[in-house]
Design a protein around this nucleic acid. Structure first.
Length: 488
RNA sequence: GCCCCCAUCGUCUAACGGCUAGGACUCCACUCUUUCAAGGUGGCGGUCGGGGUUCGAUUCCCCGUGGGGGCACCA
């Protein structure tokens, strides 16, 4: 039988990276093994789920490209079944009615946390025969507790941790049906996973101590016990479980920061798993092909945003500029969106070529978007530092070189505006004037992009095209002369 | 307090009981070069402590220490 796994998030309003990693591992395994990946939303009346909260989870999933084969199912839809299961346990004597007031139990817990474990049970046992049924029939509020078998060690082979055992003595008789008749989490999960024929429950380490309770419930209900795999938790830089106070923890946050879903998936996969080779940059399909539970690590891992950014740069580098175009649009500052759309429309290849130049130097989509300005709009902003370094020291020289270069390049036919030819012309001019090529290149760079850094200057020239390049050079010359005149 | 899990560079990780403990991020240097990145080369940096078992422990066992998770009429 092929495996059936599931991801069962509670709708908290966003998909956090821990959940995303759990979802990813389930998805990877299902895809690798040719199994089924189901999605179940753990919506209970208590943390009342709104449609928006559910949508946030689904959006995160689809952004990551984690498609599910069945669902989404909603835990809330199974309440009647959960209740029936609980009542059946009661009828079979595997559960009992507990009339202890919650406040009373809370008080006992405070006084003697250890002794409180069996307190409700002892209370129930002290009841006269038939008393519980009478009081229940009279409408007295009470919870239904599962009767945890004594003298029992619950053992299971966790797919990550190996043989794991829990003495049942330490497990309290958990409530399975509240006084208001609503089923509790541990019962609902067991009932649902059994109902959905889940063969492997893969989830966070934080559920490890729920597992013996659930196994006992499976057994009591007569359902086949699935396999379990408990994934190590993801920690913040301080070694504590990753939470909101560590900053960005929702996958949407990273989307906003210009992280590619491919990079996020790659990074998350490497958090608690390794392919066993030296390869780190991996595509989705490579991950699927390499994934195996045997190579999942037991130790919890610290989320290293710096490495995520590096990995993102690697994926960015492997991307095609044209493919990235529409993504970049979403990260552009206000005034740049329209010209970018126009450029994309009129000359998609040219626009893609510009992106290709920028991609190499970027670690996020934001980086690309930020560098795009000079290629989109006429008005150019000169960075003071760049001006100071390459124009202002010897303004007359800079303007003179720039002017000469402009005149020289102006003579080129459109077909001659190539990297090779441009370099030839520029170096030729430098030689004629008895100067190093840098004396031309640096002022030119400031004129073209307004900054001291850019992609290779000849690439920039080609990407901008003759018209805009020449105009910028002229504008630069003018600007320098005006400044000098102003200072004189 | 009780139960459980975990432990290799700062971080992510590799090493069926056997080469000098390998790779990646970060940092530093060098290189390439028109700048900045990217790339290339090199460097710094680790087996938590103590006992066993063994010819030999990162690896197996025990104890300690440290870290984490759980112990709800939350999920």
């Amino acid at each position: 039988m092929s495996i059936r796994v599931r991801f069962a998030p509670s709708p908290t309003g966003y998909l956090h990276v821990g959940g995303a990693r759990t979802a990813l591992f389930n998805w990877l395994l299902a895809r690798r093994e040719g199994g089924r990946f189901l999605l179940r939303i753990e919506d209970t009346d208590r943390n009342r789920s709104s449609q928006e909260m559910v949508d946030a989870i689904l959006e995160g999933m689809s952004w990551l490209g984690l498609d599910w084969d069945e669902g989404p199912f909603f835990q809330g839809e199974g309440v009647e079944r959960h209740r029936a299961d609980a009542l059946r346990l009661l009828a079979e004597g595997k559960a009992y009615r507990d009339f202890t007031a919650p406040e009373e139990l809370a008080r006992i817990r405070e006084e003697d946390p250890d002794g409180a474990t069996r307190y409700p049970r002892r209370q129930a046992e002290a009841l006269a025969p038939g008393e519980a049924e009478e009081r229940a029939a009279a409408g007295e509020p009470h919870a239904i507790r599962f009767l945890v078998p004594d003298h029992r060690v619950v053992e299971f082979d966790d797919r990550v941790h190996g043989r794991t055992r829990f003495p049942a003595e330490a497990i309290e008789d958990l409530v399975i049906l509240r006084a208001d008749g609503s089923p509790t989490y541990n019962l609902a999960v067991v009932s649902d996973d059994a109902f959905m024929n889940i063969t492997l429950v893969m989830r966070g380490d934080d559920h490890l101590s729920n597992t013996p309770k659930q196994i006992l419930l499976y057994e009591a209900l007569g359902y086949p016990v699935p396999e379990f795999a408990h994934l190590p938790l993801i920690l913040g830089p301080d070694g504590k479980r990753l939470s909101k106070r560590h900053g960005a923890t929702a996958v949407g946050d990273y989307e906003g920061q210009g992280i590619l879903p491919e990079a996020m998936v790659n990074f998350l996969a490497l958090l608690g798993w390794s392919p066993g080779t030296d390869q780190e940059v991996m595509s989705r399909s490579e991950l699927v092909a390499a994934f195996s539970l045997d190579r999942v690590v037991k130790k919890s891992a610290v989320f290293d945003a710096e490495k995520l950014r590096w990995l993102n740069g690697q994926h960015l580098n492997r991307m095609d500029g044209v493919a990235l175009a529409s993504l970049v649009l979403d990260h552009l500052e206000a005034g740049l969106r329209e010209p970018a759309e126009a450029a994309m429309e009129t000359d998609p290849a040219g626009f893609g070529a510009i992106l290709d130049l920028l991609i190499t130097r970027a670690r996020s989509v934001d980086d690309v978007a930020m560098k795009l300005r000079p290629y989109l709009v006429e008005e150019i902003v000169y960075d003071p530092g760049a001006v100071k370094k390459h124009w202002a020291k010897r303004p007359d020289e800079a303007a003179g070189h720039l002017e000469a270069l402009r005149e020289r390049l102006q003579g080129l036919e459109p077909g001659e505006w190539t990297e090779a030819r441009l370099e030839e012309e520029l170096r030729g001019l430098a030689e004629e004037r008895g100067i190093g090529a840098g004396k031309l290149i640096h002022p030119l760079r400031v004129a073209l992009v307004g900054e001291a850094v850019s992609p290779g200057i000849f690439e920039v020239l080609v990407a901008m095209g003759p018209d805009r390049s020449l105009a910028r050079m002229a504008a630069g010359v003018q600007w320098i002369r005006r400044q000098v005149a102003g200072n004189a």
